[in-house]
Design a protein around this nucleic acid. Sequence first.
RNA 1: GGGCGCGUAGCCUAGCCAGGAUAUGGCGCUAGCCUUCUAAGCUAGAAGCCAGGGGUUCGAAUCCCCUCGCGUCCGCCA
Length: 580
Amino acid sequence: MDVDNLEKFNPLALFDKEANAQMRKALDSLGGNELYLPPLKLHQHSDYAFVCFSLAGPLGMKPQELAEKLVAGIGANPLFEKIENVGPYVNFYIDRKVLAGKTMEMVFRMKDRYGSFEFEDQAPKIILEHTSANPTGPLHVGRARNPIIGDTMARILRKRGYDLDVHFYVDDMGKQLVILTWGHENITGLDVESDRADHKFVKFYQEANRLMAEDPNINNEINKLISLYEEDGEADISKKVKKNCEDILEGMLVPMMRLDIHYDKFDLESKYVRDGSVAEVVEKLRASESTGEDDGALYLDLEKFGIHGRENKLFLTRSDGTSLYTTRDIAYHIDKHNNFDHMINVLGEDHKLKAEAVSIALNEVLDYEKKVEVIFYAFVSLPEGKMSTRKGQVVYMDDLIEEAVSRALAEVEKKRPELPEEIKLGIAETVGVGAIRYNIIRVQAEKQMTFKWEEAMNFEGNSAPFIQYSHARASSILRNTDAPNDFDPGLLIHESEISLIKALARFPSLIIKCADDRTPHLVASYTYELASLFNQFYRDCPVLSAEADIMEARLNLVKCSKMVLQNALNTLGIVAPEEM
RNA sequence: GGGCGCGUAGCCUAGCCAGGAUAUGGCGCUAGCCUUCUAAGCUAGAAGCCAGGGGUUCGAAUCCCCUCGCGUCCGCCA
């Protein structure tokens, strides 16, 4: 993507380019042609700042002297209000009128596409795999970071212009579904009242695991079923497993839909076993120099690739030749490799070693070129410790959503008792679900989190409802008075107006950064900041009671803010309500 | 034992990759602001040896080394 293209989508690109070009020119004219000029940074003290320490020495000047000469060399520029030095710093101040005009023009032209980009040529095809939770029971909040990070990242990458496919890899080939199916067929007397297959089956799964551990006969019976399942896709057990898997998956997706998280495709692990691609991979790996056999079981020797530990054999097959999870994952990634330009996975930090092994197998042993990129996240734990389905120490997503929505409803009842019931319910859903997504995405993925109800249910300060509230305020101003097409952006000179416009201008750059650095949490900080600046504007600058020309300009600023708030919330998968 | 990640006010958190001008916000706490576009809001204040130690640099939360704490992995489980 070249700069000219960027300028079509990003109001700051022009200023970026100009400030850097002017600096370069001034530096060259001082004899610094050979010197590397780091890109100018946005800074709190000015719009673009450059520090002269590192270049002063090579030019035989003192930093302040260099700064003064650079400023003199640059001279006046129509894009900048002033360019001056403060000690050793060169500061560029963007012309507020030019910025306001360019930014608002672009927001109005692009509307809900503001913050989106398009590649000039064919967009690269990316496959993003996320969630991929075992279909054995309902999703709990310990795993909820995965779909939320994944879906937010998907939204960011789409805005960036990639041709993106989101896939959910279904582990339907392991033992767990057979155990669960056996439990469903053989266990009676369990209290499993639920209209959701995931909630119902998880109880059979837990009970079957318990019985397996204490009764060797049951253990044997289930192991036989597992073998049969792996060998014969048409066996009775295989048909039942398939059906149960589908039902459970359907249940698991209910809260995902409620969070507005969607998938383009579900890839079944069993497909790669049944179509022979796993067997093919095993043979290729066996033929390589990097694997060995232990009692008939094939393993990858990780020691050779610099991975050390107590045990560094990664097993690819069992002694009986049947495949293991990682092997199937290698086959899956070969399939991805053949159909996409780039692969990204969202995985829990417990998968680090396995992900590395898949990469070694793919890139180093089998010589495939493209790398698998992984976004890792740390687990969410409870104040009393790790979340565990077995110990019953879990909070299910369904319960979290219910609780959030009902607390939001209580809040709406209190604040807007006059609203019709249906509207109240709609707002509660929007606010409750938004609060959950926001509180999970706002923290950097690799940081550990402890789940606390009070924090997850936060409806003020740094939270989704805070942002939604700003949007509702903007909507409220525009409810009966539309912004006229004709207005003078030059009238927007209040400090709060200027800060708000700068924030609006930054949105496309933010999308680029978050897409390229894979940092979805920064969309949350940005959106919060934007909402906060809107609230300050709201306090300082009355709109509807202002003089006609000021009112027209402010109405347009409100309209722009509403659009960008909506686009930013949309990037987070959060609804922007008209009222609340 | 080894690998990887994390450690920023009582609690949560941005900044760290590409080192610079008084370390970002929030929760909680203290004191204020609703006859005026929605107070789920706004303003002001108190609160930090940026885990600890060493190094590199004119300059370190940021880069390097060591130590400590937390998480996670090192199954013919997934």
